[in-house]
């Protein structure tokens, strides 16, 4: 092979190797979510946040159920909302940010809570939010309830 062509070939080969090393060296940084040494780490982190969000939803629903069951039927609405507000003090949403709908029918009181604000989970690489609406039903014997 011609000596000049040989030098050019060596340069091309070395450049090609450098290009491969540079590409694989920086592939982690180019990946959405950043570099990681563990396979599926980000996905598991996201699933953990989802689990936490579901558990918070469950907590709020159960707190609403307890509040409804412990409120007296004579002064149901005020007592329910006051009790529920105490439970929400530990969460990042307040009772004032809820709109409540009360429906009494056939001995059952159904409360639907509609949240005006989302609960947000801020993580390093993503933001997860959910609207903590709930619906609970309890036995209710007082007829003619007017919210």
């Amino acid at each position: 092979m011609n000596r000049k062509a040989m030098v050019f070939l060596y340069i091309c080969a070395i450049a090609f190797i450098i290009a491969i090393v540079t590409f694989y060296g920086s592939i982690g940084k180019q990946t959405p979510g950043g570099d990681t040494k563990l396979l599926g780490e980000k996905e598991i982190q996201l699933f953990g946040t989802y689990e936490q969000a579901e558990q918070d939803m469950y907590y709020i629903g159960l707190a609403a159920q307890i509040s409804a069951e412990r409120a007296s039927q004579e002064n149901f609405q005020e007592e329910f909302e006051a009790q529920f507000a105490k439970y929400l003090e530990k969460k990042s949403i307040t009772q004032e940010e809820y709109t409540f709908s009360y429906t009494e029918s056939a001995g059952t009181m159904t409360i639907i809570g509609t949240a005006a604000k989302d609960i947000v989970y801020e993580e390093e690489n993503y933001r997860y939010s959910l609207t903590p609406n709930f619906r609970v039903s309890i036995p209710f014997e007082m007829e003619g309830f007017i919210p």
Partner: peptide, 8 residues
Amino acid sequence: MTVPSLDP
């Protein structure tokens, strides 16, 4: 996980 009790 955390669950509420009868005492808020």
